[in-house]
Amino acid sequence: MRAALSFGLAVAAFAAALPAHGEGIDVARQSYLANLLTQDCGSCHGLTMKGGLGPALLPAALAERDDAVLVETILDGRPGTPMPPWRFELSQQEAAWLVARLREGVR
């Protein structure tokens, strides 16, 4: 019984660590984020993430990168380059959700 409970908790904790599935981000916010990604990130990275002024953000291009580095890049930007910080409007979890979208490929 206790084992089952702690297994359940572990699953819940694991799921919470996986914002890729959108836990904690409601549907309206997810659709806002998806639009932000294609349109506003797309203005520098291309609507299909094939790159523009900013580099391509296709799954293959990000394969070598750590999630943590990418999340940090999104939240804090890259000073000295045009990549701006998004912390003013995105939470850690939302940035992780965007990275997950990028990893599975936008559209």
């Binding site: 203005s43 520098c44 701006p84 910080p85």
Partner: peptide
């Protein structure tokens, strides 16, 4: 004037 520029969200 040497101030830190604001982030640019679109060129």
């Amino acid at each position: 004037r040497g101030e830190e520029p604001l982030p640019v969200y679109k060129m």
